[in-house]
Design a protein around this nucleic acid. Structure first.
Lengths: 213, 213
DNA sequence: CCATAAGCGGACCGTTCGGTCAGGTTGTGG
DNA sequence: CCACAACCTGACCGAACGGTCCGCTTATGG
């Protein structure tokens, strides 16, 4: 579990009682694991059992289940955005963009809740909005750098990249884990579509937001 | 509601009592509409109410909710496969493949349950397996024809096409219906990746089945 | 070491779901 | 036209869920 960007509520365990801090950590670990394995529909009771704490304790730390999901999902978004920012320091801009997409897809494929959360109505939460914006910004910078080097076509944006990451991650969903690395096939194919050599005019402008109206 | 291929159970209303046949039709229409609008999680009670019949009647026609979902989903798969077979008669093989993908995505985007069903564990059902095979076969023929005309790269198969359809349909899921035709942008982009000009070697072989082990 | 408040936990609540069933209704073959 | 089987229905059931609450435990500052 990493730190949230500029917002320490989730892991703000400093001025807590020792047992409370310990339980909160156990809870977040258990929730992340259960969500990744079974999706966000797992019951609070299951998560509490895995963490070895009582159900009531869960609601002491997070008023509703949605708050818990939001906390975990926000942390993941932040981690992903951080990875993107880190890759901005990479020499090869094309490989950096590809690596970013690969890491993002891998994260999403390994975590059932991540896929669900992207689609859910959690967009109302301002913290998630911020994390999402940070992610799109990182993707946009990586794209701009790759464009400047002429390795991607000039009509794509950071929003496109984020949505295509989602597309690749969902592509192989029907097969479950039957062919473990199959998503790499489709990431590669889609990346071919991002190259300037392939470019045919795109019929619809890129979006300028990830949130529904 | 169209006919199931070679299997008339779903709409086998011939030797039924008149009221039973009528109710079955109302039920299937209501279920398809509710599933499309709200996904497969809508309650049986809701569907029954929309059909104007009692809840018990639903279970008279379909032993479990899963049976109902399977019937509706199978019908959709069959319709999609039929559309693919129809497009095999189209003169321009490249446009036929593109049109097939576009129709498939459009269907999936307009129907929440369709997206869910693709991922669900309904693959056990032999009828769905058959419908799925028929769909992949149609996609494979369209692909082979396009390949013979040199308009697509030579390392893709019908399975790739079906999975990429899924990818495109899910790509814009985070935005809901905020930008109605946005999926066309990503279908176009991915189709660019399917052209021979763009081809870089793909890292993983295509799957040879859509079912998990 | 103790007083106290913060934390804990699981019985409990209201709701919703898929699915069942007994008893009333109705279409239909003869 | 009638008898009967097929059909319809909504009250009902048990399970599972998110969330509440209060009596008990325990960490901690003084």
């Amino acid at each position: 579990m990493t730190e949230r960007s500029g917002w320490g509520t989730v892991l703000f365990v400093d001025r807590m009682r020792a047992d409370a801090a310990r339980n909160r950590r156990l809870l977040l670990e258990a929730a992340a694991a259960e969500f990744a394995e079974y999706g966000t529909e797992v019951s609070i009771a299951r998560i509490a059992a895995r963490a070895g704490i009582g159900k009531g304790t869960v609601f002491r730390h997070f008023a509703t289940k949605e708050h818990l999901v939001t906390a975990i999902f926000g942390d993941q978004l932040d981690r992903l955005a951080a990875r993107g920012e880190e890759l901005l320091g990479h020499a090869d801009s094309g490989q950096a963009l590809l690596a970013f997409m690969a890491d993002a897809v891998e994260m999403q494929v390994a975590d059932r809740s991540f896929c669900q959360a992207v689609t859910a109505d959690l967009r109302r939460d301002p913290q998630l909005r911020a994390a999402s914006d940070r992610l799109v910004a990182a993707a946009g910078s990586l794209t701009a750098r790759a464009l400047a080097d002429g390795v991607v076509r000039d009509d794509i944006t950071g929003y496109d990249i984020v949505l295509l990451i989602n597309a690749v991650a969902q592509a192989t969903a029907p097969l479950g884990d039957a062919v473990p690395g199959l998503w790499r096939r489709y990431l590669s194919l889609i990346f071919d579509g991002l190259r300037p050599q392939a470019a045919h005019p795109l019929p619809v402008p890129a979006p300028d937001s990830l949130a529904p109206p």
